[in-house]
Amino acid sequence: MAKSNGSGVKKAYLILYNAVSAIAWATILGRVVVVFWWKSPFFVPLVVDNFARITQTCAVIEILHALTGVVPAPVFTTLMQVASRLFLMWAVCWPFPQNNTSVFYSSMLLAWSLTEVIRYSYFALKQVDEVPGSLHWLRYSAFLVLYPIGISSEVAMTLQALFYGPASSLTPWYPYALVMVLLSYIPGSVILYSHMLKQRRKYLGAGKTAEKKTQ
């Protein structure tokens, strides 16, 4: 009975966590799209910057989820994904807000928010075995387009901080730190993209369907 109760609490927690996260990222997505369309990229950070930073920072808890086994996610790839985004939010966008008015900031948040709305919605519905086939397909296919957009936007934002920040205005070593992070994108992006391709083959290959329980 205790094990059953614990399982129920865990399921309720994961439903709540993923649902709230999906709503938060949907809010970011809506703000970016509306302001970008009706105004310009210049106004996007005015309506989304702080909220996006807080929302992304809260994702640190997902590292704990992976470490403690709350979700069956690989710790290393989870750490890489969360750390890279925290780097963008706190080490690139926050110190150099003047760069956030560029189109790359908007495209970065667009890719992130679309990815997360799909991902969190998928995992929330998975807890009650109600994942639509279309959402299942998007979960393991949307990254084919969104990941390159996100990565290229992240690199562009970092380059802007490096050359137009200027990064050296903070500390003499800051530009070197940014260069090191940029170099880490070469193996890092390959690892993460390869991981998602592997997941796609596993869960969409050989006639897999949304009704089958997936990771």
Rank of each mutant, 00 (worst) to 15 (best):
L110F: 06
S134F: 15
Y17K: 08
W25S: 12
V155Q: 07
I54E: 12
G188E: 08
Q56A: 07
A91C: 09
A156K: 09
P172M: 14
M157K: 08
A167G: 04
W38R: 12
A83P: 00
A111I: 00
V20Y: 09
L204M: 07
V60M: 05
V71T: 02
M196F: 05
S7V: 09
S7K: 10
N5K: 15
K208L: 05
V44A: 13
L162I: 11
I186L: 10
T57I: 06
G207C: 07
R200S: 11
Y193D: 01
L162H: 04
I61G: 03
I149K: 06
V179R: 11
L146G: 09
Y193W: 01
T115S: 08
G69A: 09
Q199P: 00
L162S: 06
Q56E: 06
Y122W: 09
M80N: 04
V190D: 06
S106R: 02
F163V: 06
S106H: 04
E154K: 10
E116V: 12
V82C: 05
L125P: 02
T158M: 08
T209W: 14
T171E: 07
S102E: 03
D49P: 04
L14R: 04
I54F: 07
L159N: 09
A66S: 04
G207L: 05
L162Y: 06
V145T: 15
G150Y: 03
R201H: 14
K208H: 14
S169N: 14
P148L: 07
L170P: 13
L197M: 13
K202A: 08
S153N: 12
T101R: 14
K39A: 13
S107G: 11
L178W: 03
